[in-house]
Design a protein around this nucleic acid. Structure first.
Lengths: 362, 362
DNA sequence: TGGAGCAGGTAATACGTGTTACTCACGCGC
DNA sequence: GCGCGTGAGTAACACGTATTACCTGCTCCA
């Protein structure tokens, strides 16, 4: 009876229950079934038949076929979330889960699911356009867009709903980003207020990343506000990883060890830098005060706990998703450019003791 | 001419290029277009017409409509990746990016995309079955399955391709998991070898999680192997978070401070525990030796760097994806139960100094 | 008596593809 | 002259839904 299918064929699964069968069982037409199940407004269907249909559907365990529906509706209720960062970077990205959570939090109640995709090699950027070409997704969130992504421009031209997580100067894509300039400025001004100058800088990434450039800009603004000169010898470049932080700090200590504090534009990079400082036999914050950026979940558990600029990861996700949903549904978008505010979280690495004790923030 | 649509309607986008238009342009039938573009084996189409079709498709920028294709093919080339953990847990999950990377690494070359979904509340488990009901996904990876997930059993009944990331005792779902028992055993035996007993235990999670139960079992096995008794007073339960680790360690130090070492079954929990130890004025590893589990990326940057059991996050993803693809494509599955091996990474928190110096592993 | 209007539906078409069954011309052996 | 295989290609159907345009009685009003 139940003949096992030859293993080179996909297993034959049970036939689907279609709306036709529901119609048959309820004694109505397929049209009526559709009208009832989709709650189409403006149609007058008496409560009795409506109930008959609903019951028939329930009894048969009917669920409409997604593809069939998508074919005619031209909606898939699917949003693409594409990570443009290099693998190195995605790997080090401690925020992905939280951003993703923010996105789904907004998308799910509206019935949208999330398709996550990483661009493996930068050579082949924009494999994601196939998704929009095939019309499999209704909208797109692009995290960490690169300016050398030529396929992106094409999407712009087609007016496909896209929201950037991060910025792409020179384009008018709607985006959500962190206010990196102000965040960095706050961090450095905190150090200056504590009179810890000269203050060095280790960036989070190479300078062509806008986040890196912006945080550098914030650093400059803070110096300027305090009437201090900018000294290029006090700047070293990180590259997302702890290792890069370790090396950057080594370089600074080697060539220009006179600084009294450092702003490190990434927690992860800071972890490495702290190790380098320790290895030199120096102490944080006594010898060098440190303020970093991101407020990774573990920033408070380093020794000493990091004073750092909190990045609103979850909000990044929610705001981007909200914006995208507006675009997808053709509603007017209140803001096309959102810069989220940051918050300086003061712990111990900056040498600022609130009550004089070595208290641990709760 | 180009009348702006009223803003309450979705923007009317360009009409799609269909295969019919390609056929028209190439001077053949739609069937031929399909045959050529899908490279259907066994059909004899002369090179000349084949080229005509390909060129027409190229010129028009034709891409087949995903939904239409899915409708008839009954394949979506989409895999579901569902996180069953509580939000708390997902939040703390440092491995998600890496596991995901492993999954996509395998799935992408085969043409499959990944739909990521988190179960928000445990009350409403299995919202994901809708995805399979609607036939929107071809297969499912369930991370951290819960035994109270009644919808899962339903899927089993329908023979839908599912692979678990983690285990669900009492079911015969294919799964990929870490060998938690052996991993924990290795960790504890290392402490015992260093003669650091009594050795306490802080679990990673409440006992009904298999990972927690298994690591506890490994702890017991190690004790047994060394002929030592199991003492329940030396066991405290963590709950995924640093906070829980902090509190668990406080409880241990409060009620039964005589232990000389502790196995903490999660890096994250260990971070909290380390803070608690520090706060008591005790030192690691001098007063208490610590070995933990996971080898989070930051484990080597705590002070002291953590000796910990490395969990092969990426492999979890790749192996699960491989298994799932076999199921989806109806190929026989070599192994239906995979336990991945772990590796003990020795750093400083266990008090074992390789060369006598306070060396930092490179 | 003759519509107008309406409640309660339904037939038919469209969506864009994959695939099976079939046509048609043509050469070829006998 | 006939059957037959074959290369080259097509008509037609299936997939499962949403939606538009239409139909059928019935009531109500002039």
């Amino acid at each position: 009876m139940d003949e096992p299918s030859p293993s080179n064929l996909p297993p034959r699964r049970k036939r689907r229950v279609t709306s036709r069968e529901v119609a048959l069982r309820a004694g109505v037409s397929r049209t009526t079934v559709s009208l009832v199940l989709n709650n189409v407004p403006g149609t007058k269907i008496p409560e009795q038949t409506r109930q008959r249909v609903l019951q028939a559907a329930r009894e048969l365990g009917y669920t409409p076929h997604g593809a069939a529906r998508a074919l005619v509706t031209r909606k898939n209720y699917l949003l693409g979330f594409v990570l443009c960062q290099s693998t190195e970077q995605v790997f080090a990205d401690a925020f992905l889960p939280e951003v993703l959570r923010g996105v789904t939090e907004v998308a799910k109640p509206e019935g949208y699911r999330i398709l996550v995709e990483a661009l493996e090699n930068v050579d082949q950027p924009g494999a994601y356009v196939q998704l929009v070409r095939e019309q499999r997704i209704d909208g797109l969130i692009l995290s960490g867009p690169r300016s050398d992504d030529w396929q992106l421009a094409e999407l712009r031209h087609e007016e496909f709903p896209v929201v950037l997580l991060g910025q792409l100067p020179g384009t008018d894509f709607p985006f959500v980003d962190v206010d990196n300039v102000r965040g960095a400025r706050k961090a450095v001004e905190h150090l200056l207020r504590l009179r810890r100058y000269p203050v060095a800088l280790i960036t989070n990434a190479p300078p062509h990343y806008t986040s890196s450039a912006d945080r550098l800009e914030g650093y400059r603004q803070a110096l300027a506000a305090y009437g201090l000169p900018f000294d290029g010898r006090l700047v070293a470049y990180g590259n997302f990883t702890e290792e890069s932080g370790f090396e950057a700090m080594e370089r600074l200590l080697e060539h220009f060890p006179s600084f009294r504090s450092v702003f490190i534009a990434s927690d992860v990079v800071a972890f490495g830098a702290l190790a380098a400082i320790r290895e030199r036999g120096l102490h944080v914050p006594q010898d060098i005060a440190v303020v970093s950026f991101d407020d990774t979940r573990l920033a408070r558990y380093t020794s000493p706990p990091l004073t750092t600029v909190r990045l609103p990861a979850r909000s990044l996700g929610t705001r981007a998703a909200e914006m995208l949903l507006h675009l997808v549904e053709g509603k007017p978008v209140p803001e096309r450019a959102i810069l989220l505010e940051t918050e300086l979280v003061i712990r111990e690495s900056c040498g600022f003791q609130e009550k004089g004790g070595a208290g641990r923030d709760s």
